[in-house]
């Protein structure tokens, strides 16, 4: 299989996933999109092995490693900070009372609805992809991907 065919298949899978996302919402079954996503990613990994002109050498591996490392270094802090806050919100953790503990601890006003939490987390995940692409471009440049020669 050629590289371009592989990219075309990825595009088709992405469109299918968007459709399944929408359908999952219509039938109120999140499990459908969750399983579909896992199957799609596994499928992409399997198809990738069939690509003949996608040669990956040690420099490519190094670029990928560095990009993933930097992405994770930035992303996990932001994602964890937001997720911890969101979980606190979902648990409706009370603030520490200023005086003696009362029988009914004060309930925080809902700053983040579960719906908003889901959207923000999905947004952060999408942002991670852009972050990864950015780091990948940076490290590709650093390790000589854009170098030209007289040959």
């Amino acid at each position: 299989m050629k590289k371009n065919t592989f990219y075309l298949i990825i595009g088709c899978i992405a469109i299918a996933l968007v459709g399944l996302f929408w359908y999952s919402d219509v039938i109120h079954t999140p499990l459908l999109i969750e399983l579909s996503f896992i199957v799609a990613v596994a499928g992409i990994y399997l198809i990738r092995r069939q690509v003949s002109d996608l040669k990956e050498d040690e420099r490519d591996v190094k670029i990928t490693e560095q990009a993933v490392l930097r992405t994770m270094q930035v992303f996990w802090v932001v994602f964890c900070a937001f997720s911890i806050g969101a979980v606190m919100q979902l648990l409706r953790a009370p603030t520490f009372p200023r005086g003696f503990p009362t029988e009914h601890p004060p309930i925080l006003p809902e700053l983040l609805s579960p719906r908003l939490i889901g959207f923000v987390q999905l947004g952060l995940l999408c942002l991670m992809i852009f972050l990864y692409v950015g780091f990948r471009i940076y490290y590709a440049g650093k390790y000589g991907d854009w170098e030209t020669d007289e040959e």
């Binding site: 420099r59 000589g144 170098e147």
Partner: peptide, 24 residues
């Protein structure tokens, strides 16, 4: 050529070029 060396060694041409230029 860089292409030939890359093929024999089993890497991409860009890797040979990057090594030659001291980038990698």
């Amino acid at each position: 050529t860089q292409e030939h060396l890359a093929q024999v060694i089993g890497v991409n041409r860009q890797t040979i070029l990057a090594i030659e230029k001291g980038k990698y």
